[in-house]
């Protein structure tokens, strides 16, 4: 057995990881190798010193300090949450407003760019009116045709937002998007309701815990 192997075995033996055969092998090596025997003795003596260490005791007011820190941390968390809720509501309004502005600006940009660049093909001509929605049916010279809502826009101008996915003719997007919007609003409100319910339960639980803690402290101080 090599000395490096013997030292590896020494550590394994210390951690009770050697089987009987390996332990015998180590003993045989130690019997004939003074260097490894010295290593074993020094190691045992050195690590044996650790037994001299006494277990230091935590300070007397340790538990009280832990309780105090927990109470303070919980109060911080609750304060932060309530602050976030308030600012969250305002930031939600802000972002909703910003998003609405963006949509208006982009729609305007599409409107003007389409007109100025003139790259949308030949001029469009009104060919008729949709019976149900009152949308004007407009067709281009290049035989492309699309359906447009007549919601105040001048006839003959193409609105990209009327057909964002390029589905083409005979699609009335107005009523459909309203339905989608209502559906989304319903989903959002249901979700928000659930979040609020969970929060109320959590706050109630926190309240009970804090009250218990307060009672405990007041009893102790009395």
């Amino acid at each position: 057995m090599r000395c490096s192997k013997a030292r590896e075995y020494y550590f394994k033996n210390r951690d009770d990881l050697l089987n009987e055969a390996e332990r015998m092998e180590l003993q045989e090596h130690l019997a004939e190798c003074p260097a490894c025997l010295r290593f074993e003795k020094e190691m045992n003596a050195g690590l044996g010193l650790l037994e001299e260490l006494s277990e230091p005791q935590a300070p007397d007011n340790f538990e009280w300090n832990v309780r105090r820190k927990i109470a303070r941390r919980k109060a911080d968390i609750m304060r932060r949450q309530s602050r976030f809720n308030e600012s969250g509501r305002w930031s939600l309004k802000f972002f909703a407003g910003a998003a609405a502005m963006m949509v208006i600006m982009l729609t305007g940009a599409w409107y003007f760019l389409g007109d100025w660049q003139g790259d949308l093909g030949a001029p469009l001509q009104v060919s008729g009116t949709d019976g149900n929605s009152g949308a004007a049916r407009v067709s281009a010279e290049s035989d492309r045709s699309a359906s447009f809502t007549n919601s105040g826009y001048t006839e003959g101008f193409r609105m990209v937002s009327d057909d964002p996915y390029g589905y083409g003719v005979d699609k009335n997007y107005g009523p459909m998007s309203q339905e989608l919007l209502r559906q989304r609003r319903m989903n959002y409100l249901t979700e928000e309701n659930l979040i609020l319910k969970t929060r109320v339960i959590k706050l109630k639980r926190e309240n009970v815990m804090l009250r218990n803690l307060l009672e405990k402290y007041s009893k102790k101080s009395n």
Partner: peptide, 10 residues
């Protein structure tokens, strides 16, 4: 806390 304070502190 009572159970582990000394061990953890040590």
């Amino acid at each position: 806390v009572t159970r582990y304070k000394n061990r953890l502190y040590a």
